[in-house]
Design a protein around this nucleic acid. Structure first.
Lengths: 232, 232
DNA sequence: CGGCGGCTTGATCCCTTTCAACTGTTGTGG
DNA sequence: CCACAACAGTTGAAAGGGATCAAGCCGCCG
């Protein structure tokens, strides 16, 4: 827990109190569900290792991925409105999460006001990410979407202290295309263009960013994420 | 303030304490800014009357509307992550808001824990709305987007206690098309199809929903918003 | 090795965009 | 009160980009 951003800003004794509260540091496998849409919420979750996807399912079986969660980020706050989850969450690779049980959270956040504010901050951050996704999907070409996604994905990895110029994307093309509102084949073609223009190399899942500036340019330059960095 | 959903769940004395805190009940005109992207946050806002749009601006002058706020809803929580607003907000018609100054909010929410939780709830709700927007933009035809937008817009009006079957949309076609990630002309044509199929009538800004079921059907049926209503 | 699944590539079609003209409404000033 | 400009929205025709359908490729695992 200590390496997560959640405890940032807490006093040492508060951190250890929080540490005791953490129900379990679960190990989860690929495709394992943390919870389903409609479930009564038990906890919110902090990613330690790996990555997760949030998605909504329609009656006709069509699903839409609406969020991706990397180490250091929180998810499950969708249920804080009415205790019901509005998305399902699945691990995209072998991962590791902390579950923060809601029951204990309520009492604890009275004793540690900073904790509640910290969760509020992380939720606000997730809201902004979702707003950015809206921007990503609104009136952008396929190439721009993919390039912009890669830029932001790399940025978020960097924020989480992970390698950002060469890494293994746990997201399948299937999931990525769904997330970006495109067809699988279209994403594949966009990758080809990016490869041909020399700003990335990509095999099945290993991605290498060769020229971040060119990538940003192809993304339709609009990334202000580093203008005023998130404080924690 | 009393008619807003924010005080719901508070004790009467807490409500009056909150009432005293409310800085001012501002009257705002069309296109008036509440704050700009990048601003240091002063407050979060509760809509009393009218409607607002949140949007992000790119360096090249292209903007993207990422949120719409109706009476009873809160906005400005985008700044709770790091005190900087990540969107700009403008009134879409003559409106009325309560500003909840952040400075006082911090101290007050310690005395009234319910208040903080209520704001958390509203933020979670906004997050879900944004997730729904992602779903709206991902792989949907123009007609589906417009129809689904109208369904949800009507639902949200109903939740706010406003007329939901016949009303005046303050959103211009320009803004609506931007929000939906479509071209102005495309939205116009989608409206025509919806009119021709008999589920709505629409003049410049007056909209009338004649057949909500047919509208839902054309939206590609996927609206689960009433499955488990938001508790307040 | 053989087969499966994930990904790539190609060819065609269709929906949305784009460009352009038009309609109708609002509002202003003579 | 009408003329006119300015603006918002509608409609049409043509072009382009992504979707769709269909093969083919390749890495992986039994």
């Amino acid at each position: 827990m200590r390496e997560l951003c959640l405890p940032a800003g807490l006093r040492p004794d508060e951190v250890s109190e929080l540490d005791r509260m953490i129900q379990k540091k679960q190990q989860v496998k690929v495709d394992q569900y943390l919870f389903h849409e409609g479930d009564i919420a038990q906890a919110i979750y902090a990613v330690r290792v790996g990555s997760f996807k949030s998605f909504r399912l329609r009656e006709d079986g069509v699903w839409q991925i609406v969020g991706i969660h990397l180490p250091g980020e929180l998810f499950g706050m969708d249920a804080l409105a009415d205790q019901h989850h509005r998305v399902s969450v699945q691990a995209m690779e072998t991962s590791n999460v902390c579950a923060l049980p809601l029951a204990e959270l309520a009492s604890l956040s009275i004793r540690i006001p900073t904790l509640g504010r910290q969760i509020m901050r992380m939720t606000s951050r997730e809201l902004n990410t979702s707003y950015e996704n809206h921007e990503l999907l609104g009136r952008r070409s396929a190439q721009e979407r993919v390039a912009l996604f890669l830029c932001r994905y790399a940025d978020r990895r960097r924020n989480s202290g992970l390698k950002a110029d060469s890494f293994d994307m746990a997201i399948s093309r299937q999931d990525l295309s769904n997330y970006l509102g495109l067809q699988l084949e279209t994403v594949s073609r966009a990758f080809r263009q990016l490869k041909d223009s020399g700003c990335i190399t990509a095999s099945r899942s290993l991605l290498e960013i060769k020229d971040i500036n060119k990538l940003r340019e192809l993304a339709g330059f609009c990334d202000k994420t580093t203008d005023y960095a998130y404080q924690q």
